[in-house]
Design a protein around this nucleic acid. Structure first.
Length: 529
RNA sequence: GGGCGGAUGGCGAAGUGGCUAACGCUGUGGUCUGCAAAACCACCAUCCACCGGUUCGAAUCCGGUUCCGCCCUCCA
């Protein structure tokens, strides 16, 4: 398995500290707002990385922090009159809602800066003792010149930075490039007690401290967005390696940005979309698919059209799942009489190619391409297969298991549970029955009326030799379907087509829905409720 | 100014020395259908920003040019 390492600027064979075990630290969000789509990319990218490593037999330990002590949080809390830690906590909870929707697995540990102040004070003290930090008026700065490897990650030299320094210079610092480890508290700010007075930690120290605390002095992979390379990750290295004398991270991985009209999506430019706004318009699996359909290091341009395309593309894979589901007679009883099959041979080859693609720096784009090829093979096979043929059943089931398994590794098959599933399906089938009968009687206006009605609810209807099938992305509301059925029944009654009206009432009853006629009209209820 | 990366069909996006340049979207023709949708079948880049070089052979390596993005300030 090969991984692009920012440190060396090339792909390297992944050799973990311990065989078949991998320790990953991912930089998490600063929680002063809802996350935007740009924040979601590393979440999905590193979640996919993690799933894939687990799929390949690694025991993964995954740590993702929350920055809940920070200038932006303090500013926000002063604007809104909410205590900083409370505000941060509130957005941490909101973060989990978004992440869960996107099918992001929880980390093994989600450490928060606010809960590791003691550890940070301890680390800062040691850095001072070793000569890597100095105090000025209650502030502590890191002495960049003392760390000889400074700049090795971002590929720049201290000299270059000093000459081209655009940093607003704090005169008290020994060098403009020195950065804050500890900031003395200003009036009205949250603070903790330290040997240097009341204050709070700088941003960079938390990751060094929490990474080493939970994963050890040296870890395998540290990930985040490319904008963290400098200064954040550079400073993490300086802090941690000065402290331990050991390499901090073996593989640094950075994802590219999401752009809008080729400009980076960012809060300061104001061109961002909150993840939940996007999730309002598009299902989570589509968003996830969109985020990994491009290689993680490439820029990814955003607009609704791209998501629409992702919706259609993913829909193709889901269609295969649906077609197989429809084809299968009895899922449990297969598998025994499995014979040689050209389909399975090809599918197994594609599974290997999927692995080759993912092994090559997690090339999800190429891997997804192989998924489409599998999908295509299964669809073609299905078109000629026979439901009653045990061999066909076995082969298709086996092929689909591969597709599902690989989709699961990428996290793109998110099951959408419906709470009224049973009734809903029955009601749809009753509508299908009415339409089917209308078609047989050549009453196409009624047949089309039903189809158009369903179309208006974003349910599309497809006739197949085996019957009628429904497709929808958002689970439709039972209430609306019932209103239509009640309407139809009323019009049948007024036309004195009682056999149709009764068909509706009787089949609803069988489905567990009771229709009662009253003076004002009909009403309905679910029998068990 | 310094550092890093990119330029592939109508669009998106893989491919980093050698079979017909993946895959998806769109489009076209066909099968199927009361109509439709889905599915299936077939077709859609003699060419990979430009110029030069290395090589038997390059989109793929090297040099140069143009254009674009990112980082150097909080940012995933």
């Amino acid at each position: 398995m090969r991984v692009y390492n920012t440190l060396s600027g090339r792909k390297e064979e992944l050799v973990t500290l311990e065989p078949q075990k991998v320790k990953i630290y991912a930089c998490g969000p600063t929680t002063y707002n809802y996350i935007h789509l740009g924040n979601a990319r590393p979440l999905v990218v590193f979640d996919t990385l993690r799933r894939y490593l687990a799929y390949r037999g690694y025991e993964v330990t995954y740590v993702q922090n929350f920055t809940d002590v920070d200038d932006k949080i303090i500013n926000r809390s002063q604007e809104e009159g909410e205590e900083a830690i409370k505000l941060a906590e509130r957005y941490i909870n909101e973060y989990f809602k978004d992440a869960d929707t996107l099918n992001i697995l929880r980390a093994d540990v989600h450490p928060r800066a606010s809960q590791h102040i003691e550890d940070m004070i301890d680390a800062i003290g040691k850095l001072i003792d070793k000569g890597f930090a100095y105090e000025v008026d209650g502030d502590i700065f890191y002495r960049v010149k003392a760390f000889k490897d400074y700049g090795k990650l971002s590929g720049r030299s201290v000299e270059d930075m000093l000459s081209g320094a655009r940093v607003e210079v704090d005169e008290r610092k020994e060098e403009p490039v020195d950065f804050a480890l500890w900031k003395a508290a200003k009036p009205g700010e949250p603070f903790w007690d330290s040997p240097w007075g009341k204050g709070r930690p700088g941003w960079h120290i938390e990751c060094s401290v929490m990474s080493t605390k939970y994963l050890g002095d040296t870890i395998d992979i540290h990930g985040g967005g490319s904008d963290l390379i400098f200064p954040h990750h550079e400073n993490e290295i300086a802090q941690a390696e000065a402290l331990t004398g050991k390499p901090f991270v073996n593989y640094w991985m950075h994802n590219g940005f999401i752009t809008i009209n080729s400009e980076k999506m960012s809060k300061s430019l104001g061109n961002f979309f909150l993840l939940r706004e996007v999730l309002d318009k598009f299902p989570a699996d589509v968003v996830r698919f969109y985020l990994i359909a491009t290689h993680y290091r490439s820029p990814l341009d955003f607009d609704d059209g791209k998501l629409e395309e992702a919706r259609k593309a993913l829909g193709r894979l889901k269609t295969t799942l649906m077609l197989v589901d429809e084809f299968q007679q009895d899922r449990s009883a297969v598998d025994e009489q499995l014979q040689e099959s050209e389909l399975l041979e090809k599918v197994n080859n594609l599974q290997q190619e999927f692995i080759v693609a993912m092994d090559d720096d997690f090339n999800t784009a190429r891997a997804i391409g192989h998924l489409f090829e599998i999908s295509h093979l299964i669809n073609s096979y299905l078109a000629k297969a026979s439901r009653d043929n045990a061999q066909d059943q076995a082969v298709v089931t086996k092929a689909m298991a591969v597709l599902k398994e690989l989709g699961q590794v990428l996290g793109i098959f998110i099951d959408q549970e419906s709470d009224q599933g049973a009734e809903l399906e029955d009601v749809l089938q009753i509508l299908a029955g009415l339409r089917q009968a209308a078609r047989q009687e050549k009453d196409y206006s009624l047949a089309d009326d039903i189809r158009h009605f369903l179309g208006s609810l974003d349910i599309s209807i497809e006739d197949t030799p085996a019957g009628t099938r429904f497709r929808y992305e958002a689970v439709p509301e039972l209430k609306l379907l019932m209103e239509k059925l009640i309407d139809l029944r009323a019009s049948f009654k007024s036309q004195k087509r009682y056999e149709k009206a009764d068909y509706i009432r009787d089949s609803l009853q069988q489905a567990g829905i009771i229709v009662e006629d009253t003076r004002e009209g009909a009403r309905w209820k679910i029998a068990e409720a």
